[in-house]
C-alpha cells in the first residue's frame, strides 16, 4: 500500500489543464462543458455509448475520455451502463442491420428529453461502409440525431468539443 501511495504522490496529478494538441485549451472546452452541464443537467450529464456496428475505433477514443489526462468526469460527464439512466446517447456507426432493432430499443429506453450524437464518419454518413444489405449507414437513418462528431475516429478532444456544442446549442429545458 505504501508503494501505491508513493507512486501516486511521485506522479502527482497528470490530468491536463486542457492541453495544447494544436487546439484551443482542453480546459477551456471542459470549463464551458461544465458550465453548460451545471446549467442544464443539474451538474451531471449521463451518457450511454452505443456501438451500433462500428470497427471499434470510435470506442477506443470514447474510452480515452475516461483516462486521467482527459478525465472527463471532472466536468460532470459520466458514462452509464443503462440507457434508462442516460441523458444522451453517443452512437457510433455505421448502424449494422443486425443492430437496427437493438439501437431503436435503446433509443426508446432512454428517457426524454434525450440527446443523440452520431459519432465518427460512419455514424455521421456511413463512412467506408455506406448503405448495403448489411448496413443502414448513418445513425440518422435509424433514429433522430441532434448532432454529429466527425472524424475517423474523432479524437478525444473533438469528442469533448462535439458534446459541448450539442448541449450548448440546445435551448434550455428543450
Amino acid at each position: 500500500m505504501l508503494r501505491i501511495l508513493g507512486k501516486i504522490q511521485r506522479l502527482g496529478i497528470v490530468t491536463e489543464q486542457l492541453p495544447e494538441i494544436g487546439e484551443p485549451a482542453l480546459t477551456a472546452i471542459g470549463e464551458q462543458l461544465k458550465a453548460h452541464i451545471g446549467e442544464r443537467f443539474g451538474g451531471s450529464l449521463a451518457i450511454r455509448e452505443v456501438d451500433a456496428g462500428s470497427c471499434n475505433g470510435c470506442e477506443l477514443e470514447v474510452q480515452a475520455l475516461n483516462n486521467p489526462l482527459y478525465s472527463i468526469e471532472r466536468f460532470g460527464v459520466h458514462f452509464v451502463a443503462s440507457p434508462r439512466h442516460a441523458d444522451m446517447l453517443l452512437v457510433s456507426g455505421p448502424v449494422s442491420r443486425h443492430m437496427e432493432t437493438a439501437l431503436l430499443r435503446t433509443y426508446e429506453a432512454t428517457p426524454e428529453p434525450r440527446l443523440v450524437i452520431a459519432v465518427g464518419e460512419c455514424g455521421a454518413c456511413g463512412g467506408e461502409f455506406g448503405i448495403s444489405y448489411a448496413s443502414c449507414g448513418a445513425v440518422s437513418n435509424v433514429i433522430p440525431v441532434d448532432a454529429v462528431i466527425r472524424g475517423c475516429p474523432p479524437t478525444p478532444i473533438n469528442l469533448m468539443r462535439g458534446i459541448l456544442e450539442a448541449i450548448a446549442k440546445r435551448s434550455p429545458g428543450g
Partner: peptide, 11 residues
C-alpha cells in the same frame, strides 16, 4: 455474435 456484420467481404 454477428451483430456488427457490415458486409465487409461483399463491399
Amino acid at each position: 455474435l454477428g451483430y456488427t456484420h457490415k458486409g465487409i467481404e461483399k463491399i
